[in-house]
C-alpha cells in the first residue's frame, strides 16, 4: 500500500466528516428548538431573547453560523452545552472513550466465542452441533436487544443472586474490580448479538474455504489436521470477517443505545439521545460528528488490516 493511498483515504475521511458536519448543522437548524429560549427559559422577554441571540451569533446568516462553528471545531472547541454549561467536546470524548471500551471488550469476547463456534459448525456441517449452533445464532440475531439485555439482567444481574452489579459505570482507574464487574453484563449482552451474527459469517466462509482446491491440495500433501485447519483454512476464512467487524463498530457506537440505557452505561449513544431530548444543539452536533469520524476511521483500519493479512490486496 502506498503512502499516497493512505493520504487519499485520510482526505476522503476528512471530506466525509465535513459533509456530515454540514448535514448535522443543517438538521440542528430545522429542529424545533431555539437556543435562546433554551437558555433563558419560557418566561424571557423578547428583548432578552434578542440580546442573547446577538450574543450567540444566532441572528447571523446560517452559513456564517456554520463557518463560525466549524472554525471552532477545527481548533478543538465544540462549544458549551446549553443544558449544563460544560464544554461539549470533553463530555462527548469521555463518553466515546467509555463506548470504545465497551465496544472493544465486546468484540474481543465475541471473537473468542464466535470463531471456534463457526469453525465447529463448518467442520461438522449438517450434523447436530452445526444445526444447534445455527439455531442458536438465529435466535441470537432475531432477539431484540432489550430482550437479550433483560434476560441477562434477570439472570446474572439479579440482585437476589448477588452475582454482579446490574447497572452503572465506574471508571477502571478509580476502582478496577468494581468497574470491571459493572462492565460484564453490558459486554455480555452486546457480545451475544454480535456472536450470533459473526458465527454465521465464519461458518459460511469456512465451508467455502474448506472446499477450495488449495485446501484439498494441502490434504493431498498429507499435512497434519491442525496445520490444514488453522494455517490453510481458518486464516483465509477470517479475512471477510474483518470487514464485518468494522461495520459492527459503527453499530457498537451508535446502535446500542438500548443496551446503554438499560444498564445505565454512560456511552456516547446515550449522551447523544439525552442531547436530542434536551434539544442541546452543541452536544448533538459534536456527538454526531465524533461518531461519524470514529466510524470512518474504523473502516479504514479494517481495510488496512485486511491488506496486511491478504497480500493479494494492494492499494495503489
Amino acid at each position: 500500500m502506498s503512502a499516497s493511498y493512505l493520504l487519499r483515504r485520510l482526505l476522503t475521511i476528512l471530506l466525509t466528516v465535513l459533509i456530515v458536519s454540514m448535514l448535522v448543522f443543517g438538521i440542528t437548524q430545522v429542529l424545533p428548538a431555539d437556543a435562546a429560549v433554551m437558555l433563558l427559559g419560557e418566561n424571557a422577554t423578547p428583548e432578552q431573547l434578542v440580546a442573547v441571540r446577538a450574543r450567540l451569533g444566532l441572528d447571523l446568516p446560517v452559513w456564517q453560523q456554520y463557518l463560525g462553528w466549524i472554525g471552532h471545531v477545527l481548533r478543538g472547541d465544540f462549544g458549551t452545552s446549553l443544558e449544563t454549561g460544560l464544554p461539549v467536546g470533553e463530555v462527548m470524548f469521555t463518553a466515546l472513550g467509555r463506548s470504545l471500551l465497551l465496544a472493544l471488550l465486546s468484540l474481543l469476547l465475541m471473537l473468542v466465542v464466535a470463531i471456534p463456534l463457526g469453525v465447529v459448525a463448518a467442520l461438522r456441517r449438517g450434523r447436530a452441533s452445526d444445526l444447534g449452533i445455527g439455531l442458536a445464532s438465529y435466535v441470537g440475531v432475531s432477539m431484540p436487544e432489550f430482550v437479550t439485555a433483560t434476560l441477562v439482567l434477570i439472570t446474572l444481574g439479579n440482585p437476589a443472586f448477588g452475582l454482579l452489579p446490574s447497572t452503572g459505570y465506574v471508571p477502571l482507574t478509580e476502582d478496577f474490580r468494581g468497574g470491571l464487574a459493572r462492565l460484564v453484563l453490558p459486554v455480555l449482552t452486546v457480545s451475544v448479538i454480535l456472536v450470533a451474527h459473526v458465527v454465521r459469517m465464519v461458518r459460511s466462509e469456512m465451508v467455502d474455504v474448506l472446499g477450495t482446491d488449495y485446501v484439498r491440495a494441502a490434504r493431498m500433501k498429507g499435512l497434519s489436521r491442525p496445520r490444514i485447519l488453522f494455517r490453510h483454512a481458518l486464516r483465509n476464512a477470517l479475512l471477510p470477517t474483518i470487514t464485518v467487524v468494522a461495520l459492527d463498530i459503527g453499530y457498537l457506537l451508535g446502535g446500542i443505545i438500548v443496551v446503554e440505557e438499560i444498564f445505565a452505561f454512560p456511552g456516547i449513544g446515550r449522551a447523544l439521545i439525552v442531547a436530542i431530548q434536551q434539544r442541546d444543539l452543541p452536544s448533538i452536533q459534536a456527538g454526531a460528528l465524533i461518531m461519524a469520524a470514529t466510524y470512518a476511521l474504523a473502516n479504514l483500519l479494517a481495510d488496512l488490516a485486511y491488506a496486511a493479512l491478504d497480500k493479494r490486496i494492494r492499494y495503489a
Binding site: 488449495y214 490434504r219 486464516r235
Partner: peptide, 25 residues
C-alpha cells in the same frame, strides 16, 4: 496412516497451480 503416506510416499500434482496454492501463503 494415509496422512503419513500422502505427500511423502504418494504425491499429487493438480491441474491449476493458481487454485492449488494457498493465496495467503
Amino acid at each position: 496412516q494415509m496422512r503419513h503416506i500422502r505427500g511423502s510416499r504418494l504425491g499429487m500434482v493438480f491441474q491449476d497451480p493458481s487454485a492449488s496454492l494457498n493465496p495467503t501463503l
